[in-house]
Amino acid sequence: MAWRRLASNLLRGPVGEAMEPPPPQTVLALSQRLEAAARRRLGHGLGLLHVDAGSCNGCELELAALGNVVYDLERFGLRFVASPRHADVLLVTGPLARNMHEAIGRAFVATAEPKWVVALGDCAVDFGVFKGSYAIGESPVAFDLTVRGCPPAPAQILEGLLALLEANR
């Protein structure tokens, strides 16, 4: 089918863009290393819980893209989960809006060990452009990893998850 061909072209084909490290052809390799690391560490796939801490929703768009046929997280045993009880990793987006602090704290407590918290995107890393606003404040939970970008591209998010797992092996 045409779309399958397109998908494999995107994975293997000519590098489309220079401004987006790492280049797309590394995505497949990245994903495979990530899967191996996840299984070694946990004995099962990695459950990711997305926590919106005041994002503009740009980071969500790129997180959602991780599920498309090009990146296809699920294929590698990585999956988004619906509740902290099933999560290994909390992926926090947004500038730590104070109105989300209580919910973030609760989600962290409800997540079983071993667990990691990732700051995803410039806002979560250091408040990004929202620095200085009355409506944001220091994260109620500590971050194990930060992934920069506004928003980080899907390949950068994959790279970050891999780094997290390899560091904790």
């Binding site: 919106d52 005041g54 994002s55 503009c56 947004g94 500038p95 809006a97 109105n99 989300m100 919910a103 452009v129 929202f130 200085g132 606003s133 009355y134 409506a135 944001i136």
Partner: peptide, 11 residues
Amino acid sequence: LGYTHKGTLGL
């Protein structure tokens, strides 16, 4: 709503 309030207008 209100959970993602960032104080944009003030900024």
